[in-house]
Design a protein around this nucleic acid. Structure first.
Lengths: 197, 197
DNA sequence: ACCTGAACACCGTTCAAGT
DNA sequence: ACCTGAACACCGTTCAAGT
């Protein structure tokens, strides 16, 4: 006698997104997800191969959302503004979804990581923008510089690693401004003009 | 009848350093450390309060080593060279001790984190150098920009997040060069001179 | 004073049995 | 076809008992 399905992959992933925010990656267990969708842990194995696939599906779901955000962050008018807008979008997503954010970038086994395709798609608007600033030859390196910085800044922020006081928001604004200048091949920086700013 | 000690905190921390490199943070368990020092897991509670303290002691040990490395990386002659040297030291430590590195910067509970004192000491040579480049007013923000970038770059590198090909070493060199220019208030960048380099 | 086995409450995962 | 309890091998942690 067939039994009607009591849950679905979609529900499971949604539950996973919720749990990773409240209890972190370690709290995202087969049992906690099962409990939230109203089944027992072994039943989840009907829909996924194990916890690593659960992590991967949740990471993919979050990566898709972040990618959508990034794809609508740049309007193509002012490259420096677009760069700042992309960085802010990144940070806003991390603040709104710290659990999912750390899941996307956590050093996990390959079968628990978000699909490579998302990384490629999410990179596109960033590379488009850095190409306008640094030129085709340096677009990829410049994109890596900006993403590494944004990612590192946010990771340290979320981990509470900024322990020396000071204004963290201002440090973020300072960073993206300086990076914009740094990778902008067309920019001419006059030391005297900015020294007292 | 007193029983002679069969291990020591020092031995335990050393074992922890070894295990975190071979098996990662998740592999750094009370049982794996106990087995390596030749006792049973409950015996470790004679010397530390639990796993979080074990993680903290191992993180402190690694942070002390990284701090020593950083303190001898800058010679005070050329600030831009010192900045590059500090970044390379950072990256070299991470490549040689990926497990310890990820432990130091992992988002863990407060009682499992390295002592704040190490973060302050390790920051000093970086802030000294950024102060020479960006001036007193922006030294801290500039240091945060550089550390966030280095940290983010290395984290993405260790996590295998650079999936778009290209030369990762070159991207690191590009990044530190551009950051040096970016925070160097005294630098005058002539677009035409660098555009074809 | 230190070490231990046993116990407890958790994990992920497998599987035979139930509907 | 889906769900379940029971089982197994792991965790961290506590504690009474052993030397």
């Amino acid at each position: 006698m067939p039994t009607p399905a009591r849950t679905s992959l979609e529900q499971i992933v949604k539950a996973g997104r919720d749990i990773v925010e409240t209890d972190g990656i370690d709290g995202l267990t087969m049992q906690s997800v099962a409990a939230r969708v109203g089944v027992r842990a072994p039943s989840l194995y009907k829909r996924l191969h194990g916890r690593n696939e659960l992590l991967r599906l949740v990471a993919n779901d979050a990566a898709a959302e972040l990618t959508r955000d990034l794809e609508s962050a740049a309007d193509g008018k002012d490259a420096r503004r677009d760069l700042a807008s992309l960085a802010s979008t990144f940070r806003r997503f991390a603040h709104a979804n710290p659990g999912a954010y750390s899941l996307i970038f956590a050093p996990l086994p390959d079968d628990a990581r978000a699909d490579a395709g998302w990384s490629v798609r999410a990179s596109a608007p960033v590379i488009d923008t850095t190409e306008r600033l640094a030129g085709t030859d340096h677009a990829l390196e410049a994109a890596r510089t900006v993403v590494a910085w944004a990612n590192g800044f946010i990771a340290m922020e979320l981990a509470g690693a900024f322990r020396l006081g000071g204004d963290v928001d201002r440090a973020f604004d300072y960073g993206i401004d300086r990076l914009g200048v740094a990778i902008d091949t067309g920019a001419v920086t006059h030391a005297r003009a900015t020294r007292r700013s």
